[in-house]
């Protein structure tokens, strides 16, 4: 059992893995996490230079920037922190560290899937909140984007809201973010080079394959709509699997996380140099 998991050894391994992650990704992490602050400073300076007025970026612009930074984090972080494992020199040294495969796997999942995304979210949203407190032109923090768009909700039928309302909550995308990071982590430890590009290509091929499987289902629903021209949007959502879109999204995200973590563990167990 001690050869599979030992809490003391795992603690030591996690600490040293975290230190190594800082040395590999620390600077990039700081740059991405403080992007909100950099964009705010840029917007204010541009405003002063060209309009002569003081004004920070709007909540919508800052939310879009936040989303782009998440995408950059998802794409770059796993390959930067753990991409060296496929390289002969660094990979051999890493494999020879006296910790079990499960401990190395767990540390990897914790750092990539929880610690770094949580630190990023705290630093980014914390900086944004601080800016909003100090500068009223920034309106409100991007944490409140949900309230901002709530005004549009009254125009959406109740049946549609119950089906897709969960997807409008920004917090519902945390599992998507973790799932995406794990997929790119799997790509980082499987592909020897061009890790990000190859993972994206793999996802494109997978999406094409899945869309071929999904086409008959979509076709049947399109047919339903075509055969019932009087069908309202409310009727359509209350009378089909689309009524459980939020649930389907959660289940598919969990499936992605389970498949990706299993793939990562299997790869670590069988990697050779």
């Amino acid at each position: 059992m001690k050869d599979i998991f030992d809490i003391k050894r795992f603690g030591k391994y996690f600490a040293s893995d975290f230190m190594a992650s800082i040395s590999r990704y620390g600077l990039s992490f700081l740059l991405i996490s403080l992007m909100g602050l950099i964009i705010y400073a840029g917007t204010v300076i541009m405003g002063l230079l060209f309009n002569g007025t003081w004004g920070g970026p709007s909540i919508y612009f800052r939310t879009a920037t936040f989303a782009i930074c998440i995408a950059v984090l998802v794409l770059t972080m796993p390959a930067k922190i753990y991409g060296h494992i496929t390289e002969k020199r660094a990979g051999s040294t890493w494999l020879m560290i006296p910790a079990s495969t499960f401990e190395k796997f767990l540390s990897m999942i914790l750092i990539c899937g929880i610690v770094v995304p949580a630190m990023f979210t705290c630093v980014y949203l914390g900086t944004d909140a601080l800016l909003c407190i100090m500068d009223k032109t920034c309106e409100t923090s991007i944490c409140h984007i949900g309230k901002e768009i709530a005004g549009y909700r009254s125009e959406i039928p109740e049946e549609v809201m119950s089906a897709v309302g969960g997807l409008m909550n920004p917090l519902s995308y945390i599992d998507d973010m973790i799932g995406s990071i794990l997929i790119f982590l799997l790509g980082a430890i499987c592909f020897k080079n061009a890790k990000v590009v190859k993972t994206i290509l793999f996802l494109i091929v997978l999406s094409m394959a899945l869309s071929i499987i999904g086409t008959p289902f979509m076709y049947s629903y399109m047919e339903t709509l075509a055969n019932n021209p009087a069908m309202t949007l409310e009727e359509f959502f209350s009378d089909s699997w689309l009524g459980n879109l939020s649930l389907i999204d959660t289940v598919s995200d969990i499936a992605v996380i389970v498949i990706a973590t299993s793939g990562i563990f299997f790869r670590l167990k069988t990697i050779k140099h």
């Binding site: 001690k2 030992d6 020199r89 020879m96 560290i97 079990s100 401990e103």
Partner: peptide
């Protein structure tokens, strides 16, 4: 296994 790896060092 960690008990094996802790008894060994490989210098490539």
């Amino acid at each position: 296994e960690p008990s094996f790896l802790s008894d060994l060092y490989y210098l490539s």
